[in-house]
Design a binder for these strands. Structure first.
Lengths: 151, 151
DNA sequence: TTGACATAGTTGCGCTTGCAACTAATAACA
DNA sequence: TGTTATTAGTTGCAAGCGCAACTATGTCAA
């Protein structure tokens, strides 16, 4: 009967703390300068990286829920950072693309993100940082696949 | 002019994804069985691990904001999982302690958490899992200390 | 004492989220 | 063709969260 559970060694807890700690600072970049949400920043970053695509594509690529994407897209459009173009082949869907202004924001924030990421990795050391990448990707891919009852 | 920012290699993003992926499944344990919030689960876990303490102590230990702690404590009390005892030395503060029922819940969830944690670590391999712990703790401690302008 | 400041904890408000239900368009197939 | 099932995207609602303001108590020092 192990009664010695310790939150401080619980992997999901540690991951959450680390994610919050590292995200918090960078959040200031897009929140203060552009009044953007994390979801908005991610949608922008995906469009900036991959070019025009539909909301559904963004969902698939980024694993963000469609509700969040929908609202983020509406907000980004309202701010003039992206445009929607109907797809004549499928009138349910719309192609999303960054405006010139949206691209400018993407380049500005992307630049800051790269610098921040480098600083973080620098503090960890190169090989550790690289291993961390692999481990995190592994957890992202398989982190929810163990316990078979739920869902 | 590096325009090649890629979200997929951005450490805060990876950490968030990994945290979400691993937390989601375990969340089912406390949400489905006890209708608890993540914050409630964390407060319960801290009280279970460290015994009676004040809300302020929980804030200090866990880095959860006092507002969240306050509301989680109220909810846990309403569910009969903890009791508040006024501190005669300082009538602003209250000692919080798990009830018998609260302890039972803590042991149940703690057990499940240990199992889940072991499964996660097993999938990573022992040495990698251990390194991950150290890296995450490092990021938690220093993850926000680089960029000096914000705040 | 009394007044200025600090601290424990709560509350109000606006915002983001998650979930389920919804609309509109398309696909599948008898 | 008509009927049903999928899919793209939106919306309503009930939370939870973050922040600032607030209450009540305690501290310090003139």
């Amino acid at each position: 009967m192990p009664q010695d559970f310790d939150l401080e060694t619980f992997l999901p807890y540690l991951l959450n703390q680390a994610a919050e700690a590292t995200s918090k600072r960078f959040q200031a970049s897009y929140k203060a300068a552009y009044g953007m949400t994390r979801t908005q920043w991610r949608v922008l970053a995906n469009l900036g990286k991959f070019g025009a695509m539909t909301a559904r594509d963004i969902c698939t690529i980024s694993h963000i829920e469609k509700t969040k994407v929908s609202r983020a897209v509406a907000a980004l459009q309202a701010d003039g950072l992206l445009t929607r173009t109907p797809n004549p082949q499928d009138r349910r869907a719309e192609f999303l693309a960054l405006t010139l202004q949206g691209s400018a924001v993407f380049h500005d924030l992307g630049q800051k993100a790269i610098e921040y990421d480098l600083a973080l990795r620098h503090s960890l050391g190169p090989d550790l940082a690289q291993k961390l990448d692999a481990v995190l990707r592994d957890l992202i891919a398989h982190g929810g696949d163990f316990i078979e009852d739920a869902d």
